[in-house]
Design a binder for these strands. Structure first.
Lengths: 207, 207
DNA sequence: CATAATATTGAACAGTGTTCAATACTAACT
DNA sequence: AGTTAGTATTGAACACTGTTCAATATTATG
């Protein structure tokens, strides 16, 4: 029995999260279990439930840390002073690289689905927003041609699109014939989207 | 005890799949369990395991049927004789509508993740390919400007992108600020991508 | 040193996927 | 009709799962 006050609640929390992350990395989402985490940090299940509401809470906390890690990863690889297109390509390549390097953790980011009606907590949305903000910054050089609002919207569309390509590739829903890499596909998307976006002088409406 | 030969194996299979689908629709992916399905069709777990390899197999079979349903849904709503852009917008709107109408089943389509190294079975990839082929057809009117190969690639990129928008929206990873609908985002994507794609005279390479 | 307070446990509960010997049934053959 | 062979179906058993909470172990205080 671990002596009381051997670790503070916060220490236990962090230990659990760290251990849980490595379980997910090694065995995937489904390999995670309360007892496994508890044993690995030298405590029992009961203690885990003093520190986390339930397993879903644990998963959400891990995802929060993954979003932080992803943010740092992208920042470290972003080409700050490049033009819009180059920055975006760099960013998308970094995103893809993260997903391919940390596949189980990246997968878990989207396997957590809120019950119908429930929303993701504000702190989580903030972390998500911070990652997404990098795309906005990369698109900023186009500010002269478009309103801030328009760039905001284009960022979302682009990010979601790159994400979609990445997801279908990693989950093997896209390798049916052509043999393009994820990076090539993202490149094609950005090329054409930006050419279209730059060519549009006014608000983007159909036709 | 259900009498033997009351139902053929195939009948049991179909009954199980139908029941399982409605459980997923009503209670989501996590609501599905072997005993629940077995009871609902008046058999016991053992029988289920004569007909399906395991629960993952059951899920994959349901997903196959969902892909068929999605294909029919999209076909019924596609604007066959319209120009490329309009067909694509129609198609993306239909896709989004399906995802929003049959959210749990649509979600399950992407929650099934193959173990590292394993691939999705060929029959499943074929069904996937058939859905994806609709996008190719919609893009076909642009054939004059682009090679078949190029259109194939553009289809994939577009489909994956619409899918990404749809996914992040439905899983609430995208509603941070702007208040665009999924349809508006998909519209923006298609507008700009196609404007860029039409403007490009040769192979799409960066720059 | 006794007492109050609290950190930690681990057995218990109701569920899960999966297996497989035992049973219930049907069809074929005297 | 009665026996037998063959097979469809069962359901108890196993090793797990998340979650709870009375009981216990440990510490700090008076």
């Amino acid at each position: 029995m671990a002596r009381r006050s051997d670790h503070s609640r916060e220490e236990i929390r962090q230990m659990a999260l760290t251990v849980a992350e490595s379980i997910v990395s090694a065995e995937g989402y489904k390999g995670l279990s309360a007892r496994k985490v508890a044993n690995a940090i030298g405590y029992t299940v009961g203690t885990l439930y003093l520190v986390f509401e339930n397993l879903d809470d644990l998963v959400l906390q891990i995802n929060g840390r993954t979003l932080d890690a992803l943010y740092e990863w992208l920042r470290a690889r972003s080409a700050d002073d490049a033009e819009a297109q180059e920055s975006l390509v760099t960013l998308s390549e970094a995103y893809i690289a993260y997903a391919e390097t940390e596949t189980p953790r990246w997968n878990m980011l989207f396997e957590y689905i809120t019950q119908q009606g429930n929303e993701l907590p504000a702190w989580y949305l903030a972390k998500l927003n911070r990652v997404f903000g990098l795309v906005e910054v990369a698109l900023a050089p186009l500010a002269s041609h478009h309103s801030k609002r328009e760039i905001e919207r284009a960022s979302r569309v682009l990010w979601a699109s790159v994400h979609g390509i990445c997801m279908l590739k990693i989950r093997q829903r896209l390798d049916v014939a052509g043999g393009q890499t994820t990076g090539e596909m993202a490149g094609m998307l950005i090329d054409n989207f930006l050419r279209g976006f730059a060519g549009a002088t006014t608000k983007t409406k159909r036709g």
